[in-house]
Design a protein around this nucleic acid. Structure first.
Length: 924
DNA sequence: GCAAGGTC
């Protein structure tokens, strides 16, 4: 029933959506908006009818999130509190200064409206922004009727449908985002303050950070991103090139040349390869055993999503993801391309795909192709294949306006526009068609194959100049045909480490592990560079800096996976549960913050690991208070004297422990502790007697010889005044150390000497139980891995596994203990040798060669030992080098079972002193 | 001085 007109405030997530929806609903493409308080957010007005209700529509927007989460003022200064407090410090949402004008517009318009319709993007963040808008509007007009419009694309039919079927906003979705925001803030701020304050005083790191104000930030997205870079770097460092051998065959005829590759790929065992090669050389006639002809298709890419745009721009134009997004944003603002932040790689069936192509027909470079595409006779058109991703908010990136290049465009603008257009044209084109021929031949029982390809139809490749489809023509062969190869060679090769991560690789890793969103991934990458955690070289590949590597190493040495993507994955799972209503926001916050706080406290107890890792790369600073014992101060209680600051546990340079007020020198409240204390750590336990609480108990360790025998060296004590034992020991021992700190023995063991925190820590894995990152062995952590002694980072470390007096032999490949065994082969029966304890490693050395210095890695083959170990680990294997000189000259070989092979000689010249592969007349 | 998420 038509009634009196109501005034409806409609709010979209961004100005462009407000305008687009207003244009559609008002059926006025030229609709003009009036200005509000914010220069970007216009207000469009028109009349509309929603389910028979006449409406005066006011359509405006926000610019993403309207509010930010922050700590209450008292906790905002870095030294205002213990970073551990940030896990429970009060937080609140507020509108930041630069969004105040948008808030004012909403307030002014909301006052005169009866309805509020939320047109935010239909994802979790959009839902959360919707509730921010609701908060602002209902604060000034509590009687508003609140409705949510759900739409998946800015297409007229979709919008009409949506406005007639308004729903309720989804609080669960918004709650999920609230939880994420709070967890990110608390973890980020606490760890950032902790590690920054710890390292800045202890080391001279300003040298690597350009003297800028150094912040060693930690974030649940930036750190895993750094983790990917460091992990790859470590993989490269750990790589040892390994020689392998392959047999290659070519055949030239009038029709061309075919290059046949060996069915076995390559062999790491030189002897084996030579034996097979000899067999081939002795009977080199090739017989064609199979000829297969197949039609092959090469498909065009899926419609363009943000990540693909970034990856391809990086590959094709060497543009950084950050710059790509900046350029894409400008093209979007200019109306040339669609919204560039989208996960969607699927066009809605309602999109007019042909109209987009029609616009491009006049282009001097790809216009002809667009015309061909639209001509049904060419048969070039094909509806695009989707990649299965849909963010339900935006279509794939596609051109929205024709341009043959604008005068203000940089080369990058031209490149990105061209990529978007060509990519779109490719998507709606038929795949390329090729004819592939595979020929298999047999030489002396060995299989070889060659493949030739002819492109029959280029189709999309005609327009998508960024891709190619290599192919070569090979001669025609028939089954049972025989020929003598033109060349038949035994060629050496060497395994190579993987390359450093490229920007495209990094984006793929992040995408796969769910780190960041399409709109923020480039920010996290940029942050690594800004924080001096990584550098990017000319070929767009990332190397960790010393700082980045040290931080990851420090946490890794603690056994923490804080630099791995798992934490984010858990958070993503929790957010999903909250969004589905299967877990409450409070529940997720409670458990994950409790776990993260325990992890934080534990990390702080183990901070020596971080300091040790940093010490590998950086000089210790001479600043006062820089000794690592007192670089972070653990809060014991609130100061009862000034009642403003916290009392923290400190250790002076001379080794004295005390609990002092952070308000020093304004507040001089201090509790001196007995001089006989060797270690003191604040625990999470609190005193039940002392007030005002909480007063955290301290785990003390006293030096045995400095306290009366009736006292225990370990004592969990309180400094609040209730602890008789502590008072007595202070009286007995005084408050100064007996010996100067420097005269004491080695620093006691670090983390193991500390009590474990009372709370459980789900993220902590014991490095003694987990496999070493480098050699995959258990029994040591990655930082103790003997295989890493070659790494540059250990150059400053003593060789701990080579200490004199040790009688055992350790594996030079993985560092595990050697096992003494007795040979049982014909030539060496009874002779002793060592192999590696690990079944996966083929280290070998004769015992009698150790003292005369002839043994070691690679000696396996020159000493005729069984080579079967190679087979046991599937071709990957010993880090030992390939062949020794004696193999190629003596002519004595063993089979896999250790039996000698005699009577072999060079096939080419008949000389028994060498084999054909090293013959001066090499080749056939 | 700290996070990550929106978007101009």
């Amino acid at each position: 029933m038509a009634g009196r007109s109501v005034t409806v405030l409609n709010v979209a997530e961004k100005p462009s959506v407000a305008k687009a929806v207003a244009q559609i609903l008002s059926r006025n493409p030229g609709i003009r908006g009036r200005d509000g308080r914010s220069r970007y957010n216009k207000i469009f007005e028109f009349d509309y009818t929603i389910r028979d209700q006449p409406c005066k529509m006011l359509f405006t927007s926000v610019i993403g999130h309207l509010m930010e989460l922050e700590f209450d003022a008292r906790y905002r200064k870095w030294h205002s509190c213990d970073p551990a407090d940030l896990f429970q410090a009060p937080v609140h949402k507020s509108v930041p200064e630069d969004k105040k004008d948008i808030k004012r517009t909403l307030e002014e318009e909301a006052r005169r409206c009866q309805w509020l319709v939320l047109w935010l993007d239909c994802d979790r963040e959009g839902e959360n922004i919707a509730f921010e808008v609701v908060d602002v509007c209902t604060a000034v007009n509590p009687h508003l009727t609140i409705k949510r419009a759900r739409f998946s694309a800015l297409i007229a039919s979709e919008i009409y449908q949506s406005v007639q079927n308004l729903v309720e906003p989804n609080k669960w979705f918004a709650d999920a985002v609230d939880a994420r925001q709070e967890i990110d803030l608390r973890i980020g701020a606490s760890f950032t303050r902790f590690q920054t304050m710890l390292m800045k005083d202890a080391f001279n790191i300003d040298t690597v950070t350009d003297g800028r104000n150094t912040v060693l930030s930690y974030g649940p997205c930036q750190f895993p991103t750094l983790g990917f870079v460091v992990e790859r770097y470590w993989e490269i460092q750990a790589h040892e090139p390994e020689e392998f051998w392959s047999i290659n065959c070519s055949h030239r005829s009038d029709e061309g040349t075919a290059n046949f590759s060996w069915g076995r790929g390559h062999l790491f065992d030189y002897t084996c390869a030579v034996i097979i090669y000899e067999m081939c050389i002795e009977e080199p006639t090739a017989t064609v055993t199979n000829v297969r002809q197949q039609e092959k298709l090469k498909y065009p890419p899926h419609p363009l999503s943000t990540i693909e745009l970034e990856k391809r721009a990086s590959r094709y134009f060497r543009m950084s993801s950050e710059h790509t997004m900046k350029v894409a944003e400008e093209l979007y603002q200019g109306g040339f391309i669609s919204y560039p932040r989208t996960e969607t790689d699927n066009f809605s069936s309602r999109t007019d795909l042909h109209a987009i192509v029609q616009e491009q027909q006049a282009h001097p470079e790809w216009g002809i192709y667009a015309q061909r595409l639209l001509n049904p006779e060419t048969g070039l058109w094909r509806n695009p294949r989707g990649g299965g991703h849909d963010d339900k908010a935006h279509p794939p990136i596609h051109p929205t306006k024709f341009s043959a290049g604008e005068s203000g465009w940089s080369q990058n603008h031209r490149n990105i526009y061209e990529l978007v257009v060509r990519h779109y044209l490719a998507c709606v084109s038929k795949p390329a068609v090729g004819a592939e021929t595979t020929v298999e031949i047999d030489i002396a029982g060995e299989l070889f194959s060659a493949c030739g390809r002819v492109i029959l139809e280029k189709n999309y490749l005609d327009v998508y100049r960024f891709e190619s489809w290599g192919g070569s023509v090979i001669p025609t062969y028939t089954i049972d045909q025989q020929f003598i190869p033109t060349t038949l060679t035994l060629d050496p090769g060497v395994t190579r480490p993987p390359p450093l991560l490229s920007e495209a690789d990094l984006l793929s890793c992040m995408d796969k592990e769910g780190i960041g969103t399409d709109a923020t991934m480039h920010d996290h990458i940029k942050k690594l560079l800004e924080r001096f955690y990584a550098t990017k070289d000319a070929s767009m590949r990332f190397t960790p800096t010393n700082l980045g590597e040290a931080l990851v190493m420090g946490y890794d040495d603690m056994g923490y996976k804080l630099w791995k993507p798992y934490l984010r994955a858990v958070m993503e799972r929790d957010m999903k549960l909250v969004g589905e209503g299967n877990k409450s926001k409070g529940e997720v916050l409670d458990t994950s913050l409790q776990q993260m706080k325990a992890c934080f406290l534990d990390a702080r107890l183990n901070k020596v690991k971080l300091l040790e890792a940093m010490a590998i790369f950086f000089e210790r600073s001479n600043r006062v208070g820089s000794e690592h014992q007192n670089t972070t101060e653990e809060v014991v209680r609130r100061c009862g004297l000034c009642q403003e600051s916290d009392m923290v546990l400190k250790k002076n340079r001379d080794g004295k422990f005390m609990v002092g007020c952070l308000g020093y020198p304004q507040c001089r409240n201090v509790v001196w502790l007995p001089g006989s204390i060797s270690e003191a750590v604040v625990t999470t336990n609190t005193c039940n007697n002392c007030t005002p609480g909480p007063v955290f108990l301290i785990q003390f360790k006293f030096r045995q010889l400095e306290i009366p025998p009736s006292y225990n060296v370990n004592h969990l004590g309180c400094i609040g005044g209730c602890d008789e034992i502590l008072i007595q020991l202070t009286e007995i021992c005084g408050t100064g150390p007996r010996m100067p700190a420097r005269a004491r023995g080695p620093t006691p063991a670090t983390s193991n000497a500390h009590p474990t925190p009372a709370t459980n820590n789900a993220n902590h894995t014991n490095p003694r139980q987990s496999a070493c990152l480098h050699c995959q062995e258990t029994g040591h952590s990655s930082n103790d891995c003997p295989s890493q002694t070659r790494r540059s980072r250990n150059a400053q470390h003593p060789e701990t596994n080579q200490q004199s007096g040790e009688s055992s032999v350790s594996c030079s490949s993985c560092g595990a203990p050697g096992v003494l065994r007795t040979a049982n082969t014909a030539n060496n029966r009874g002779r002793k040798f060592y192999t590696c304890q690990s079944q996966e490693c083929t280290f070998f050395v004769w015992e009698d060669s150790i003292n005369n210095g002839t043994g070691g890695r690679g000696s396996a083959r020159s000493n005729n030992v069984p080579t079967s170990t190679r087979g046991r680990n599937g071709g990957r294997g010993p880090r030992g080098r390939g062949r020794s000189g004696s193999n190629s000259s003596s002519g004595t070989f063993v089979t896999a079972t250790g039996d000698p092979i005699s009577g072999r000689r060079c096939f080419t010249c008949g000389d028994p002193s060498h084999f054909a592969n090293v013959c001066p007349n090499r080749g056939v």
